[in-house]
Design a protein around this nucleic acid. Structure first.
Lengths: 220, 220
DNA sequence: TATAAAAGTTAGTTTAGACTAACAAATTTA
DNA sequence: TAAATTTGTTAGTCTAAACTAACTTTTATA
């Protein structure tokens, strides 16, 4: 009953594209270009997945995941994000290196491996890009990822990722005393240049708007 | 230039079978049955690998790995054994569960992943089965794996694996205070029943021959 | 609403890597 | 050494999953 790597890729793409598009229904060409394949290839694979009741056909070339298809897609996303977290936190990979390897690792079939890895990492809720990690049931925190520049004064938030992953920026971030999961309190914003004052570990720091735009947080 | 999973499996099988057989030359049928495939399948794949100069044909259906083929096979074995070590030591897998998952993980392509994993594990020299882990260059400790029952009195050795992996046996092993990499000094052997006295952490313990046969060690 | 453009489908081909069946060459044994 | 047995090869078929080219259907626009 195990799916091939290719079948899994289609289910995951269908899930991601429908989230992105904000609709359950995704067209053949859309899926094909999402995977970098010809529409004809997507069409025949989707028909095959329809036979396996993982996908449902919905007139005029639109496709939807069935509950089972969605469940599998979420498990793939779970595995992908857990592996990214592992690579980042345990093996010293950088933010931009994790995706490519996780793309391979997500196709390893072993229920035990996933659960043990999750436990080993301390049941993380977000990956190094700040995206939520679904649990065994496929449930995840639907947080709206904000940039630090969008946080209102007075709010307390937590750093979950950065947009700019250049060595220079990461260096600056850590000099300020910030790291993944750091608590940040937004003290004040100056209207003049949108620069902000933040409180980190009791210390107060000034950062530019450009800096704030490159830091992803969730309000806690 | 990356090989497929199938191509990699053939190279690894060829390496393992030739070590096992004690000769570089391995026959078509031998490889086929090692992989559980029909001889015709092996024949055509080996021809393909010959074109890629990873395998060399040697009259009457005998095949040998080229230097490059051997290098790749050793890297696969390195990856396999590092992953086994990871699963065993970090994710609480048991001795008998690691192989199947490592069989998948060994095909992940990422040089960085292997080297970081090796570092994370502290550059282990043996996997949980007591088999040596080749280094980046493919070199490994060619130790003769002994059972505790073969160690001469006076010798000091190190536990590297157990043969019997039943819960009952593992329980007994840990009750005695033994674990992977434990130091064991062989104090004495009684001719009567081949039971032995060993010294573990300064304490002296008596174990039966049956016990000693199920413990793999290397003399240090 | 007719037509152009976009989107989707069908048919036929290709490649990787299995398979079976038939055949050829080596090796063993009587 | 001839026959029997084992071992290896060739030829042709099958499936997964891609491709291109041609065709059809739907949607958008003049």
């Amino acid at each position: 009953m195990d799916l091939t790597k290719n079948e899994e890729d289609y289910l995951k793409a269908l899930f991601m594209l429908s989230v992105e598009a904000g609709t359950e229904l995704v067209g053949t060409n859309h899926i094909a270009s999402g995977l970098g394949l010809a529409p004809a290839s997507a069409n025949s694979m989707l028909k095959k997945l329809t036979d396996k009741t993982l996908v449902h056909y919905e007139k005029h070339g639109k496709w939807v995941l069935t509950d089972e298809g969605k469940r599998i897609a979420l498990q793939l996303i779970r595995k992908h994000r857990l592996w990214e977290t592992f690579l980042y936190e345990k093996l010293e990979f950088t933010w931009d290196e994790v995706h490519e390897v996780a793309e391979q690792l997500e196709h390893i079939h072993s229920k035990k491996l996933v659960e043990k890895l999750d436990k080993f990492l301390g049941h993380p809720e977000f990956d190094p890009h700040g995206d939520p990690i679904p649990n065994e049931k496929g449930k995840y925190k639907a947080v709206r990822k904000l940039t630090l520049s969008e946080v209102p004064p007075g709010a307390v938030c937590k750093l979950i990722a950065v947009k700019d992953t250049s060595a220079a920026f990461l260096q600056y971030v850590s000099e300020i005393g910030l790291g993944i999961r750091s608590q940040i309190k937004l003290v004040d914003r100056r209207d003049f240049d949108n620069s902000i004052s933040i409180e980190v570990d009791g210390r107060q720091v000034q950062v530019s708007e450009k800096f704030a735009i490159n830091v992803f947080v969730v309000v806690v």
